[in-house]
Every structure is written in structure tokens, then in C-alpha cells.
């Protein structure tokens, strides 16, 4: 039992060190709020115009305030993650991935710990500052203890899922040279599939149906909607979907990584 604890503790320690690393420059954490506040501000202006002009096209359940929270939430989840594909992709491209083999931890496991550590701190700071600023202008959506709990679960699963999907894509760096393009194409797919800036309900029905079967809805739209407009049935289905996707990608990562590391062996990296 002790052995298993020590094995898991390893990755938690990496998580902790990553958090500390991020806290080394508190001013930077403050600066990182600039973009998200600006974009929320501007989009709130856009939504104000929408709601004023097209009251009949309003998305059910989303008031104007709710829509602004939606924008904030999706941007929050998106920008909390450092560039996963960039970081892992570069390590693979440079061949540094091989060095992890001589250490008693797994390459992906190490990045899981370190990236989630950064993500956690980014998320907490931006959430804190963002909420403080926004409640000066708009009301919080109706919350109770359970809803808060539900939102937390949805967000944790979303961040883990985003890591796993991004990490799987980044492992393609074993075969593909152009890591940069991978980075921003993934981002755009996440924008569209996850409903950044506006909910998936805006899309034509056929597209919504397709996106429902992709993991991206669970990364941005799902948690944001849960926060803005809580619905028990939707939340339960969301968590189930997120969990299934997490398992699928854990398996995918193992397979792709095994193949990739073999290639390093054959080509010397």
C-alpha cells in the first residue's frame, strides 16, 4: 500500500513544484488577468447589442448576465492551460523525451503533473480576480452549495480532459515536424467544438448533434453552462461523457506513446 502511495505521490509532488514555480513571479499572475478581463469586457458589449436588438433570438436559459459569465468561463478554462501541445511537442521534437526514460517516472505522467500544476494556479488566480471584477457589474448566476460542487467537478474533469486530448495530439510530434500548426489548429477546433465566446446552441442543429459526440463540448461548453444555467440532468450526462472521454484518451495516449518512443529508438532522436 505504501508503495502505491509513493508512486502516486511522485506525480503529486511534480504538481506541487509546478504550482510553486508559477508562484515565483506573482506579478506575472496579476498581468495574466489582463487579456481575459479585456475580452470579457468587449464581448459583453457585443452581447449587449445582441440582446437589445434580437430579443427573440435569445438562447434559452441565458440571460445577458449569464452570457457574459459564459464568455468569462470558457475563456477562463481555455487560457488557464499553458500551451500543452507547444511544451510537450517541443520536448519530443528536440529529443529530450528520451531522457525521461532514465528516470523513475513516465514522460506523460510528468507532464500531467507539471502542466496541471500550472493550470491550477492560473485558473484560481483568474477566477478570483475575474469574479471580483465582474460582480461589480453583473449578478452572479444562482448558486448553492451543490451547484458549486457540481461546477468544480465539471471543471476539474474538463481541465484533465483538455490535457489528455492536447497531450495525445502533441504526441504526433513523434511523426510530424510542424508542431506550431498543430497547436493553433487544435485551438481552433476547441474554439468551435467547445463553444468559445458563444454557446453551442447558436450553431445549426446538425452541427450541434455532431459536436455532442466529440470531447470538446465537455471541455468548454459543458462546465460553463453548468455554472451559468445549472441543470441536474445535463450535468450528470456531462460528467459521464467527460469520464468516458478521459478513459478513452488515457488508452490512446498509452498506445501512441509506445509507438512513438519506439521510433525514437530506431532513429536515435
Amino acid at each position: 500500500m505504501n508503495k502505491i502511495y509513493r508512486k502516486l505521490n511522485k506525480y503529486f509532488s511534480i504538481f506541487k513544484v509546478s504550482v510553486m514555480d508559477r508562484l515565483a513571479y506573482p506579478l506575472e499572475l496579476l498581468y495574466s488577468n489582463i487579456f481575459i478581463l479585456l475580452i470579457t469586457l468587449v464581448m459583453s458589449g457585443v452581447w449587449r447589442v445582441v440582446y437589445a436588438n434580437q430579443p427573440d433570438k435569445i438562447i434559452s436559459g441565458f440571460s445577458l448576465a449569464g452570457m457574459i459569465w459564459y464568455v468569462f468561463m470558457t475563456e477562463l478554462i481555455l487560457t488557464s492551460n499553458p500551451s500543452i501541445i507547444g511544451e510537450i511537442g517541443e520536448e519530443i521534437k528536440s529529443g529530450n523525451v528520451a531522457y525521461a526514460l532514465a528516470k523513475p517516472y513516465s514522460f506523460v505522467g510528468y507532464y500531467f503533473g507539471s502542466i496541471l500544476g500550472k493550470t491550477f494556479i492560473n485558473f484560481i488566480t483568474k477566477l478570483f480576480v475575474g469574479v471580483l471584477v465582474l460582480i461589480c457589474f453583473i449578478k452572479l448566476p444562482s448558486l448553492n452549495l451543490f451547484i458549486i460542487f457540481a461546477v468544480i467537478i465539471a471543471i476539474i474533469l474538463a481541465l484533465v480532459l483538455n490535457f489528455l486530448v492536447s497531450a495525445t495530439c502533441s504526441l504526433l510530434a513523434f511523426w510530424v515536424e510542424d508542431v506550431d500548426s498543430m497547436r493553433f489548429i487544435y485551438q481552433k477546433i476547441l474554439f468551435i467544438g467547445g463553444g468559445l465566446l458563444f454557446p453551442l446552441d447558436v450553431y445549426p442543429i446538425f452541427l450541434q448533434k455532431i459536436l455532442h459526440y466529440l470531447p470538446f463540448e465537455g471541455i468548454l461548453y459543458g462546465p460553463a453552462r453548468t455554472f451559468v444555467n445549472f441543470d441536474l440532468a445535463y450535468w450528470q450526462a456531462l460528467v459521464l461523457r467527460q469520464t468516458i472521454w478521459i478513459f478513452i484518451f488515457i488508452v490512446l495516449i498509452k498506445i501512441v506513446y509506445a509507438q512513438g518512443i519506439k521510433k525514437v529508438n530506431i532513429n536515435g532522436g
Binding site: F35, L38, I39, V42, M43, G45, V46, R48, V49, L197
Partner: peptide, 12 residues
Amino acid sequence: AFSSNPSSVVQG
């Protein structure tokens, strides 16, 4: 981001 969103519709 500002230059690539429909932010020109904003008022005031």
C-alpha cells in the same frame, strides 16, 4: 482578439 471580433458593434 479585438481586431478579429465583431467588437465594432459595441456602443458607448
